[in-house]
Design a protein around this nucleic acid. Structure first.
Length: 838
DNA sequence: GTTCCCTGTCATCAC
DNA sequence: TGGTGATGACAGGGA
């Protein structure tokens, strides 16, 4: 009696342990008890559908020696106990023929296609044999799941076993186990004791002990609540500290503003106070250095203010902002308002016809943009400011007609501003970068569509803005970016009071020489302005005849001035090739004399004065400026950060070149050629022939004229050829950079894929081993891995097959194979066949 | 004096 | 056939 009781207890315990995937050998050698072995063997038979055939067909199916006697009193008792476990009881109550056992890590998804693990255990027909189909079984899931495998054959003792395959049950186990682990939980003391014993024996129950123990669960929840409260308190304290710091910064900025500016009661403009007098803030051309400083200081300070004040400022219309930045520093910008705002630079540049207005316009735009950006104080400015890729995206998104592109949405992204000063600077850089691209776009339109005469000032302004903004953009590449104070930065960049706005830009560019290797993305962003297609450039750039008039001058009236101009015009190409990105591309001012004093000035002046096409047809030195702009960024020949040699060469001294053209000029004078060299070279064929016909020339004169024309034409052609070559080189260089980036990206992806592959292989190996070791043959012994292997069929099922049989050949159709084994060999194989969910 | 780079020129080819 | 553009090669000049 005692023995029977003890044995029955062991049987029950074995069932439970089996359910929890516990090795009985390790627990008091329980495996040696015949009842336990019976249980295990029976379970192992569950894997072998073929072996059930005779059992299921017999009237006493479960009286087989390999199965539990379901009439066994001990089993009945323990089965009842087992049924007391609420999870199983619930399933039983619901007459579900399949159930799940899982750990909290498992998340069951209702979507069959989901990558999440989904276990289904469906009873098949009436044979009480569970067919386990595992799909995408992860390692950890398999661990939790394997314990269930051994118990599936005994799950259903009901005579009402469903004939139909149950619907797969998808359960979010984490929700079930954590929120409501066992609904209707009524664990008896015995249950808890048993669980406690299992727990103390370090038996993996699949879930935490708290799932079974309400008291423990309560304690854990309480502990969690305490941690949450502590965390909230810490967050509050951090917030208070931050607010305090911002308030101090705000007060400081306010104080600075009141000290340096006063507001004009009539115009509403903010005027900087300087030495007791006020200078108009909106007229930088009257005193460039002064107003620039004022503007920059003002803007920089207000940017900082904006960040601070924004937290508490009322929301107003953006339209007011256009009339005065300080009137309505902070607004709510609606989507359409943002669109309007983003279009302002073009409108401003298109509509305004003076430097003054342009400056005001761009400044207002900056203010507005600042307001837009600070509308959400948590916008991700740092991300934008430091990410040139974002700039590239932005630039591409700023293409006309794409105002709704997602790149503009960055303005309202969320971000945390932890360091006001740094972020202010980042914001400013970002802002300028953004405006810069906008202005580039506007400049491109202006330059390509409008005539030259009434836009000189405007374009001149663009030049300054672009150079300045270019420097600003370049600044982003500094490693010590985060320690740069905004105002100091501006002061450094603007240089001395004597230099003009343009020269300030030059000085800034010089100071930023180390950073003139601009980001490729930016280059690409403006590539459409002229650099992308060198051949297109040539159509605009070289349709003039700079070469014909270049070099040494043919007339005294053109002497030094034009000589220098022509030289500089040539070096304007060089300068474009030498790292001064974007300068030459947008320069078209007719004023050059002011910048001839310094190398940089000459460099800029050269850019301003002409490109090769700008010198066309100007024998009298009037040099009407066309607006075929060259945006080449040919950075070869001159290392980054170095002024091209030609800039120094031609800027510091008078051109003393005595080229062959000078010889031609002299000869033409000697032979009394009655027309100019330019006329000879640049005139069309018909005109040229008419000229020759109209003047009776001797052979020598004709030969000279033809030589001059040939050489002039060829000179221009050579220039074009060289320029084109440079363009090709630059294009190839860019392409190479792109390809290198692509290569790096692919290498990284490949490494990532290999890493993932290794991971998956490891998981697969572990899973394979685990599943294989879980399998038992009819004698309850594990299969020999040398004789058997697990193979997966095309439908996802996993089979245990002898080594010399492949699933593909024998089990390509799992359903047919399982239902009708045809040969003895197949029969044997089918006995080994098991299907798992994976 | 050498080297490098820019520029003009010539020769040649193709259209 | 002549004109023109493109391009390689060469030479001169300047730094």
């Amino acid at each position: 009696m005692i023995k029977e009781y003890f044995t029955d207890g062991l049987i029950g315990l074995a069932i439970l342990l089996s359910l929890f995937r516990t090795d009985l050998v390790g627990i008091n050698n329980l495996i040696n008890y015949p009842e336990v072995q019976d249980i295990i063997l029976g379970q192992s038979v569950a894997y072998l559908p073929a072996s059930y055939n005779h059992i299921l067909n017999s009237p006493r199916a479960f009286e087989s020696s390999k199965h539990l006697d379901f009439n066994n009193e001990a089993f009945t008792a323990w089965y009842q106990n087992w049924n007391n476990i609420p999870l199983f009881r619930e399933r039983n109550e619901n007459e579900i023929e399949a159930f799940l056992v899982s750990s909290p890590q498992l998340v069951f998804d209702h979507s069959p296609s989901s990558s999440q693990t989904a276990f289904t255990i469906a009873s098949v027909e009436n044979n009480h044999v569970a067919e386990l189909s595992t799909q995408n079984l992860p390692e950890e899931s398999a661990n939790d799941f394997s314990g269930v495998l051994n118990s599936t054959s005994v799950l259903n003792n009901s005579s009402e076993a469903s004939a139909a395959v149950s619907e797969p049950v998808f359960v979010d186990s984490s929700v079930v186990l954590l929120n409501n682990p066992f609904p209707g939980c009524n664990l008896t003391k015995e249950d808890l004791d048993l669980i406690d014993v299992l727990w103390q024996q370090d038996v993996d129950l699949g879930v935490g002990k708290e799932v079974y123990d309400p008291n423990l669960r309560f304690e854990l929840e309480k502990e969690r609540e305490n941690e949450l409260i502590k965390h909230q308190e810490w967050q509050k304290s951090q917030l208070l500290v931050k607010e305090k710091a911002e308030r101090e910064k705000h007060e400081q900025a306010d104080k600075w503003l009141k000290e340096h500016f006063r507001r004009d009661g009539e115009t509403g403009e903010w005027v900087r106070l300087q030495n007791g007098t006020s200078s108009s803030f909106d007229c930088p051309e009257t005193d460039d250095s002064l107003t620039l400083e004022a503007a920059l200081d003002f803007l920089s300070s207000n940017v900082d203010q904006t960040f601070l004040q924004n937290l508490e400022a009322p929301q107003e219309s953006i339209a007011n902002t256009c009339n005065g930045f300080l009137d309505t520093p902070f607004q709510t910008v609606q989507e359409e308002q943002i669109q309007t705002l983003l279009q302002q630079p073009q409108e401003l540049l298109n509509q305004q016809d003076s430097l003054d207005e342009n400056w005001n316009g761009i400044f207002d735009y900056l203010n507005n943009a600042a307001n837009v950006l600070v509308e959400d104080p948590t916008s991700t400015l740092s991300q934008l400011g430091m990410d040139f890729n974002a700039s590239e995206d932005l630039a591409s998104g700023l293409d006309l007609g794409q105002e709704d592109t997602p790149q503009r949405d960055f303005l309202i992204q969320n971000v945390t501003l932890m360091q006001p000063v740094i972020n202010s600077f980042i914001f400013f850089v970002t802002l300028f970068q953004f405006v810069y691209l906008e202005v580039l776009q506007a400049a491109n339109e202006i330059n390509s569509t409008l005539s030259s005469s009434n836009l000189n000032n405007s374009v001149n302004f663009e030049l300054g803005s672009l150079s300045f903004l270019n420097s600003m953009s370049t600044m982003q590449s500094q490693e010590d970016l985060d320690i740069v104070d905004v105002q100091d930065l501006f002061r450094d960049m603007q240089g001395s009071d004597e230099v003009s706005l343009m020269d300030s830009n030059i000085a800034m560019n010089e100071s930023m020489d180390a950073f003139t290797v601009l980001d490729d993305n930016l280059s690409q962003s403006v590539g459409s302005l002229g650099r992308i297609s060198p051949y297109n450039d040539l159509n605009e750039t070289f349709d003039g005849l700079e070469g014909a008039t270049g070099g040494t001058n043919y007339s005294a009236s053109q002497d030094n001035f034009n000589g220098r101009n022509s030289k500089v015009s040539r070096l304007s190409e060089s300068s474009n090739d030498s790292g001064f990105a974007y300068q030459g591309g947008f320069s078209s001012s007719s004023s050059t004399s002011s910048s001839a004093g310094s190398p940089a000035g000459c460099h800029m002046g050269g850019n301003i004065s002409t490109s090769s096409n700008d010198t066309e047809q100007d024998p009298h030195g009037t040099r009407a400026v066309t607006h075929h702009h060259v945006a080449h960024n040919h950075t070869y020949n001159t290392p980054p950060g170095q002024i091209p040699r030609e800039v120094k060469k031609y800027a510091q001294k008078e051109p003393s070149r005595k080229g062959p053209q000078s010889r031609d000029q002299r000869r033409a004078e000697e032979l009394k050629i009655p027309f100019t060299i330019d006329e000879i070279i640049e005139s069309p064929v018909e005109t040229f022939n008419e000229i020759l016909m109209s003047h009776k020339l001797n052979e020598a004169q004709l030969a000279l004229v033809r030589d001059i024309r040939r050489r002039g034409k060829n000179k221009v052609a050579a220039q074009n050829c060289r320029k084109r070559k440079v363009g090709v080189i630059v294009s190839l260089s860019d392409e190479m950079i792109d390809l290198q980036k692509a290569r790096d990206r692919l290498v990284a992806e490949r490494a990532e894929m290999e890493k993932e592959t290794r991971k998956i292989k490891e998981k697969f190996g572990g899973l394979y081993t685990h599943i294989f070791q879980s399998l038992r043959d009819e004698r309850g012994e594990p299969y020999d891995p040398n004789l058997y292997s697990l193979q997966q069929s095309s439908d996802g099922n996993v089979f245990l097959v002898p080594r010399n049989i492949s699933v593909g050949s024998k089990y390509s159709n799992s359903s047919s194979a399982s239902s009708s084994p045809t040969s003895s060999k197949d029969s044997v194989s089918s006995k080994k066949r098991k299907s798992f969910d994976e």
